[in-house]
Amino acid sequence: MTHEAVLSAKDIVKELGQGAGKVMALKGVDLKLVPGELTLLMGPSGSGKTTLLSILGCILQPTSGELVVDGQSTDGLDPEELAALRREHIGFIFQSYNLFPTLSALENVRIALDVRGQKGYEAAKRSEEVLRQVGLGHRLRNFPGNLSGGEQQRVAVARAIVSSPSIVLADEPTAALDGENGNAVMELLARIAHEQQRSVLAVTHDPRTLPYADRVVRIEDGLIVGEERRPEGLDAPEITDLTKRRKAHA
């Protein structure tokens, strides 16, 4: 791929906690994300995955190093400016879905447009359309409490992509799901990357997610220790599927 990186992190260091509890969660991480790829960030518990995701998602500022999102450096931005950057470029998916329990599936998706100032009928229509895309057209008016875990995570996926962000970040999106639902969510993330040309990064330590990846980045103890790219032409069924789809949309 010759795509320009939409997100690039350079020599990211992050210290967390203070005093005796101070931890160097990231010790100099370089990472680039390009459109059209599903990247998995894998590593043992405590290796710094969530911390890295928070920094890539402009939620935390790095202690040192530089993050550039769509050509704009985050250096020196205040919390409001970071929020604006998130609004514009980034969609999030969380391990525990983080849906609003008092809002219906449709409203949970709509609110992501609402915080971006997109309101009214158009926003409702767009939200409904995206919920149909993730296979929840029949669940629009259901509240999170009445949805299965898999359905809730798909609502969260819809919420993450409804504003068409160039970057989608997911923290352990399948960790709370059984195999079948986990696969459905990974399948969705792969489609989002390939069909809609977004950069998708999913933190995981679930080996079942591997077949969906275009690229796997391994992190240990705050450092990137390896990177693999899926060779073209592997014949595992999921991968063949993905490849076909990607070619069809290229």
Partner: peptide, 16 residues
């Protein structure tokens, strides 16, 4: 508070 934090993560301004 968790919902407000989620809103914030989704990029809402503090004004919102």
């Amino acid at each position: 508070i968790n919902e407000f934090a989620t809103l914030r993560a989704l990029g809402s301004s503090s004004g919102y």
